[in-house]
Amino acid sequence: MTRLERNERLIKIALFVIACSAVSILAVITIFIFSEGTPIMFKYGLRSFLLGLDWYPSEQSFGLLPMIIGSVMVTFGSLLVGVPFGLACAIFLTEFSSRRLRHILKPIIELLAGIPSVVYGFIGVVILVPFIRETLGGPGLSVLAASIILGIMILPTIISISIDSLQAVPRSYREGSIALGATKWQTTKMVILPAAKSGIIASIILGMGRAIGETMAVIMIAGNAINIPRSVLDPVRTLTSNIALEMGYASGEHRQALFATGVILFIIIMILNTIANATSVKGKAAK
């Protein structure tokens, strides 16, 4: 064996070991969360966790329903804000703007993804929350505030993945439609969007994953009260906030119940990612 071949082998083995350890770290984390979180769920029954309304860890009552509802409301709220704006922006940049403008704006939008979430939360506390309190009433710290800030936070995900999938639509579709006398908007609506559908859905689901997993900004602006909100102006606590707020002082079954919260969050996000992968794979197969 020459020196070069030996080096090649060594590099291959080293890369294999590194790759394996990356995967195994993830696996260990997963196993750890499940082993910490699931026993208590079975001890008190899955039902009491998923459907219980009361969260009094010191009295062995671990109902997560208000938090599950809180997470779902805030996440869908963020989609109501983020999807229309994000999609409109992606369509404008791919189909209507000049190439120069796109080359300037797309990196800026991607830069938004790099702003720390605490900064978004800070902007929410300083500007958005007082605004909601003064104009719409309520405490200001609310589902609405969290939805708007999260909606802005998921914009980069939705915009950049939607742009990629819109740009992947073959030029020949655009030409075929324009040559039939269609306007750009007709072409976009009737050909480009259906062709890019799977990528756009994937972008929405990934944005959704980001929104449901976001913690810091939500803690700062959602109010964190454990109750089922009656309106979008009421405060809520999400699953992620619940863990972050209480982990610092929790012990014993309280601590295990927070891991159980993590398990539920984990499962929700896994389901979303599976759907995202399935739709984008299906989209590729259709092409």
């Binding site: 073959p170 020949s172 579709y173 030409e175 075929g176 439609s177 324009i178 040559a179 039939l180 006398g181 269609a182 306007t183 009737m190 050909v191 259906p194 062709a195 259709a286 092409k287």
Partner: peptide, 20 residues
């Protein structure tokens, strides 16, 4: 312009039916 393209149709090098 749109009326022109209705009146003057174009067939392309590679068949380009829409994915519909």
């Amino acid at each position: 312009l749109l009326g022109l393209r209705k009146k003057v149709g174009m067939v392309f090098q590679r068949p380009n039916p829409f994915p519909l």
